[in-house]
Structures are given as structure tokens and as C-alpha cells.
Nucleic acid binder design. Structure first.
Length: 414
RNA sequence: GCGGGAGUAGCUCAGUUGGUUAGAGCACCUGGUUGUGGUCCAGGGGGUCGCGGGUUCGAAUCCCGUCUCUCGCCCCA
């Protein structure tokens, strides 16, 4: 018999904790609304190919972190490790190319088989946006502004720094890749083992190695920016001008690269030092080649994703829930009347807490514990008079109110 | 996948060199003579001491394995 506990790297989010979680999500949704991004929900599993083909054969996500399985029909399916591939697939499947440009917002669980840590779970949740059909660099600036607005709305502006880089277009990247490999090849004997691996599979990743020895070598390595061709350079400049115009501060980080293969040009990360090793809180970039690679018409795209748990850990939390009204009955006939009244008030839109056990003291106690703003008290006496006592739980002032006018009277406690 | 730390009640923890039915505070439930909360008093429920194996007359305590959490590497949101 398996022990009764959640699978490693998964979490129950209890009612007392879910407020801040939902707050992040709803804030992101509201910002998305302002930017004209419509919400889209795609399945949490797709054919494995959707991810394998697009994220890149060498990315860690594909090679060792996917939850893949064969279904009963023998199809290889995968729990989505990120959101962009699914949105791109939906774009193609639904023939949405007719409607470009398109702005999407999404939210939901993602799955990666990783070693859990603070801010890193196997099932985690993201909000994200995708802007399809805009090749203009201002599209990149737009989504970065949106990310900055979200972080600002969550009160995180002073806890994060925006890091920005350009990976250039295909040509620029190829040029740089060659230069980098040539340079690193000359230092093979001094590179860490991890970086030797990277050198063969995904050399750009050597750039953000944290190994001391690597860092020294990387410090003197050729810089991506220097390999940008004119067009890539103009593109990058335009993105920067857009951000400058909008007053979004950033630092250029020439060593910032992306783990997934489909990125080009703009790459950015909002980073914090308040979450230990998991510093990236919202990140994204441009992926002009993705849709074509998936089999659709060539369509430019840019977007980002943010970790809800990470944002929730950083933010102060959600605005308080509205307080309920408690109903306390004394005696059997009143209990039945109280039950009916509870139903009536709930249908009228009030949040009602009712207790079924305990003496009056206990029930008042409970009303207090659930944070009731007011308590409606019904006993034999009140019932006989067709009334109830209504007690303001803050002032302690109690007055008798006729049952027929309860809704009106209670509306002041909403 | 690799390395460090931790695991006793829902929570925070105590538990003496291995020795009877494993404790505290908070939380929870009930009562304090027949209808009033945020105090107080009394009582109560709840733990296979993460799990499995070993040593021993005897293990929460020692040994091994394993799981989970946590910090870092890796990776990334």
C-alpha cells in the first residue's frame, strides 16, 4: 500500500494559502486584459512531438525532464513542461493565421521532472503571454512592458532587475557560435566537465556557467553582441529604444542565453536575489522560427512566462477576503428557522457561516474565529417576535431586527 | 543525476550515557447548571517518533538502506 502522501515535487494548496496564489493569477489576467491579450486554455498534455520537436533535442527539458507516457492507444503523450509550444500548436490547429496579429494570455500547471527545491517543483504553475504575427521590435518592447507592469502591480518592482540581451537572427547566431566554439576549443583543458558537455551540444550555455574556472574563461570570450549583423543590431536597438521610451529600466547582459532552442533576437529575464538559486521570476523572448518549425506558415512570435509560485512567494499577498455573517441559533425550533434563514441570505448574496453544534458560547466563539463581521442570533424569544438579534462583532452592539428586513439591515455589513 | 543538512502530535519543539503506558506550548473538541465571542478554569481526542531492516533482554535514541523536505550544483518560471 502506497503511503498517503503527495508525489514528490507536488503540493496541495490549502484554502488559507490559495489567496496569494490566485492574486498573482488574477493580477496577471487583469494586466493582460489592459494589453488586449485574450485568455487561451490548451490541454495540459500534447503529443510528445509537440515539445520534442520545438524545444530542441539538446535542451535539458526535453532530454531528461519530460513526463512522457504512452496512452492506451499507444500514442506517446507528454505533460506540458511549458506553455508556448501548446499555444503555437493551437494556433496552427485552429487556422488562426487568418486573424493575425494575435495576443494570448494563459495560465495553468506545467510539469518537469526535476530535483525539487525552494521555488522549484515538479508540478508548478505559470502565467504567460504570446504575441503572434508581429515582427516589429516594438512587439518585444510591448510584452516586456506588460511583464514589468505585472511585477509592478504585485509590488515587486524594487525586488527584480530586468536583464536583456539579443541572440541575433539565425545568421548572427551561427557566426557567433563558430567564434565561440573556436575560442572555447582553445581552453578545453581548463573548462569544467559540465561545460565540455555543453561545448559539444549547446555551446551558448557555457556562457552562463557558474563554475569559477569557466567564468574566468568566459569573461574573455567573444561577445554575442559583437557578432550581430546589421539587421540584428537594428532590431536590438529598436527594442531598447522602446523600453527607454516606456521608462523601463534594464541592464544589458551579454551572457544571457535561453535554454530552449526556438529563441532568437530578444531574450530577457526579470531576476531577483530573494529566492536563492531560483532567481528567475519572469522570462521570455522572441521565437520567430517556432511556428514554421512546427509545420505552420512562418509566423513571428514573442512572449514570456512567469512562475506563479515564485511570484507568490515574493509578493506580500492577497487583499483580505470579505468577512462572512454568522448565524447562531439557540434551541431546536430556532435551529430549523436559522437553517432556512441561512439559505435565504445566501441566495441573497451574503456569505453565511452557520454552526450546527455547541452551546451558544461555542457558537459565538466560532463566529469570532471565522472572522464574522456580524452575528445573527435567533432564539425562542426572538422567533416568537418574528425577529433576530444582530450583533456587530466589532463594537459588540446588538439590536433586534425584524426577520423580514434582515437583508436590508445586514447590507451595511457586506 | 551529484554533494551538504534535516525528519518526534495539525504547528513549534523537548526527550538526559538505549530502560516501564513518548511529553510541553499553541491549535482542535467538550463542559463550566437551562441564550451571547475575542479572556479564564477543567476535561478530552490526536503520534506505527518518515519508512524498512539490523544490533540488543530492551531502540525515538546505535548501525545500514530508503523516502521526503531543505541548501547548493545542474536546469529553469
Amino acid at each position: 500500500m502506497a503511503p498517503v502522501k503527495p508525489v514528490r515535487g507536488t503540493h496541495d494548496i490549502l484554502p488559507k494559502d490559495i489567496g496569494r496564489f490566485r492574486h498573482v493569477e488574477e493580477t496577471a489576467r487583469e494586466i493582460a486584459r489592459r494589453y488586449g491579450y485574450g485568455e487561451i486554455a490548451t490541454p495540459i498534455f500534447e503529443f510528445t512531438e509537440v515539445f520534442a520537436r520545438t524545444l530542441g533535442d539538446t535542451s535539458d527539458v526535453v532530454t531528461k525532464e519530460m513526463y512522457s507516457f504512452d496512452d492506451r492507444g499507444g500514442e506517446s503523450l507528454t505533460l506540458r513542461p511549458e506553455g508556448t509550444a501548446g499555444v503555437a500548436r493551437a494556433f496552427i490547429s485552429n487556422g488562426l493565421i487568418q486573424n493575425l496579429p494575435l495576443r494570448f494570455f494563459y495560465r495553468g500547471p506545467m510539469f518537469r521532472y526535476e530535483r525539487p527545491q525552494k521555488g522549484r517543483q515538479r508540478q508548478f504553475h505559470q502565467v504567460g503571454v504570446e504575441l503572434l504575427g508581429i515582427a516589429d521590435p516594438l512587439g518585444d518592447a510591448e510584452i516586456i512592458c506588460q511583464g514589468a507592469d505585472l511585477l509592478d502591480a504585485l509590488g515587486l518592482s524594487d525586488k527584480v532587475t530586468l536583464h536583456l540581451n539579443s541572440l541575433g537572427d539565425t545568421e548572427s547566431r551561427a557566426t557567433y557560435r563558430q567564434r565561440l566554439i573556436a575560442y572555447l576549443d582553445g581552453h578545453r583543458d581548463r573548462l569544467s566537465e559540465d561545460s565540455l558537455q555543453r561545448l559539444d551540444h549547446n555551446p551558448l550555455r557555457v556562457l552562463d556557467s557558474k563554475d569559477e574556472r569557466d567564468r574566468a574563461i568566459v569573461a574573455a570570450a567573444p561577445i554575442l553582441t559583437d557578432s550581430l549583423n546589421d539587421e540584428s543590431r537594428r532590431f536590438f536597438d529598436a527594442v531598447r529604444r522602446g523600453l527607454d521610451t516606456a521608462g523601463i529600466p534594464y541592464v544589458i547582459d551579454p551572457r544571457l542565453v535561453r535554454g530552449l532552442d526556438y529563441y532568437c533576437h530578444t531574450a530577457f529575464e526579470f531576476v531577483t536575489d530573494a529566492l536563492g538559486a531560483q532567481g528567475t521570476v519572469l522570462a521570455g523572448g522572441r521565437y520567430d522560427g517556432l511556428i514554421k518549425q512546427m509545420g505552420g506558415q512562418p509566423t513571428p512570435g514573442t512572449g514570456w512566462a512567469a512562475g506563479i509560485e515564485r511570484l507568490a512567494m515574493l509578493s506580500e499577498g492577497a487583499p483580505p477576503e470579505p468577512r462572512p455573517i454568522a448565524i447562531v441559533a439557540a434551541g431546536e425550533a430556532p435551529q430549523s428557522a436559522a437553517f432556512a434563514l441561512t439559505h435565504r441570505l445566501r441566495r441573497a448574496g451574503f456569505a453565511i457561516d452557520i454552526a450546527y453544534t455547541g452551546n451558544m458560547g461555542r457558537r459565538m466563539s466560532r463566529a469570532n474565529k471565522v472572522g464574522a463581521r456580524a452575528t445573527v442570533i435567533i432564539g425562542e424569544d426572538e422567533l416568537a417576535r418574528g425577529a433576530a438579534g444582530v450583533r456587530d462583532m466589532e463594537s459588540g452592539v446588538q439590536e433586534e431586527v425584524s426577520l423580514t428586513s434582515l437583508e436590508t439591515f445586514l447590507s451595511r455589513f457586506r
